[in-house]
């Protein structure tokens, strides 16, 4: 049984701090908490984020393009040499987006559903909306790290098919940040709307369509022959992210081919969506889902 150590606590000297300062202190401490928790579980975090892209890159970037069809030639068509080039940015976007989304959705669904572990942060001296902002910010950081790690992973898996241009790195970083923010804000909205018992349903109803309609494994301009699907993909925020990353990552590719006994070289650039549409798509996603998410978050924690 405990002994009663009655050390009289000195009357707390409460410094008069401004509310903005209180809120800032609380905000950084809450962010510190998330970083600390993730840092301690960094290896599991990396595994969670990277296993799926690793297989995607390996199967779609390495195995399928080198499939032996029996006639001695590798397959061409959709899986031609350009495919791996357009795949890498798609996987970077997908990983950044989903790592950010899951970084906020899963904890939020559990917290708001029954665990209420977030209560302590809600009772911290800061506006409740800032707790949601912190969630978005931290999840975006996860997404950026997840997306960045795809580059060495791709270099390792794709080998000679690894092509990344280096003249647009600042734009590429900016695009990665936008994609991660889009994933995080969408995740905030989903996380505040989904109930714990619907988590399984969420994966099949939301995540799977998101995965396959986001122009991750194909480039948008290539869809012109399936017009309706090309239009469908415009409703997926990830489409703008994948295309944006393609525009900043994919270099023009020089291919050689033989015709009439002569060797020709050809330089191809896969056309991407226009930058203004990419920025508009991501911008609208971030703004709309941010305000929607913060609103539903507030209504879930304040009644």
């Amino acid at each position: 049984m405990a002994t009663f150590d009655m050390t009289p606590q000195a009357a707390p000297v409460r410094k008069q701090r401004s509310r903005a300062r209180l809120a800032w202190t609380a905000f950084t401490a809450i962010l510190g908490r998330d970083i600390w928790v993730t840092w301690r579980e960094f290896i599991p975090f990396l595994l969670q984020v990277l296993i799926q892209p690793l297989f995607f890159l390996f199967i779609f970037g390495k195995v399928i393009p080198n499939l032996n069809t029996g006639s001695g030639t590798a397959t061409t068509g959709g899986f031609g040499p350009l495919f791996a080039v357009s795949l890498l940015p798609g996987i970077v976007g997908l990983t950044a987006f989903t790592a950010a989304l899951q970084g906020v959705t899963l904890p939020l669904v559990l917290d708001l559903g029954f665990a209420r572990e977030i209560d302590d942060r809600l009772q911290a001296p800061l506006p409740i909306s800032l707790v949601a902002v912190e969630k978005v910010l931290f999840a975006a950081m996860r997404g950026i790290i997840g997306g960045a790690v795809i580059f060495p992973l791709g270099w390792w898996i794709l080998g000679s098919s690894y092509h990344v241009r280096t003249d647009l790195i600042p734009q590429m970083i900016g695009m990665l940040i936008l994609v991660a923010l889009a994933g995080a804000t969408v995740g905030l909205t989903i996380g505040t709307l989904v109930k714990p018992e619907q988590i399984g349903l969420m994966f099949s109803l939301i995540l799977t369509p998101l995965l396959f309609t986001g122009c991750t494994y194909f480039y948008w301009s290539g869809l012109s022959s399936i017009k309706w699907f090309q239009i469908v993909t415009l409703f997926n925020p990830l489409t703008y992210g994948s295309e944006g990353l393609r525009a900043t990552i994919m270099p023009p590719i020089t291919t050689t081919f033989v015709a009439n006994g002569q060797v020709f070289t050809r330089t191809v650039t896969i056309p991407t969506m226009e930058p203004q549409w990419i920025l508009l798509g991501l911008g609208v996603t971030i703004v709309v889902f941010f305000f929607l998410g913060v609103r539903t978050f507030r209504s879930r924690v304040v009644s």
Partner: peptide, 18 residues
Amino acid sequence: DRSLRAKEILTFHAAYHG
């Protein structure tokens, strides 16, 4: 907060409050 150890729960709480 089950992601934290017992003492961390106290220290992080205090950190939130500056």
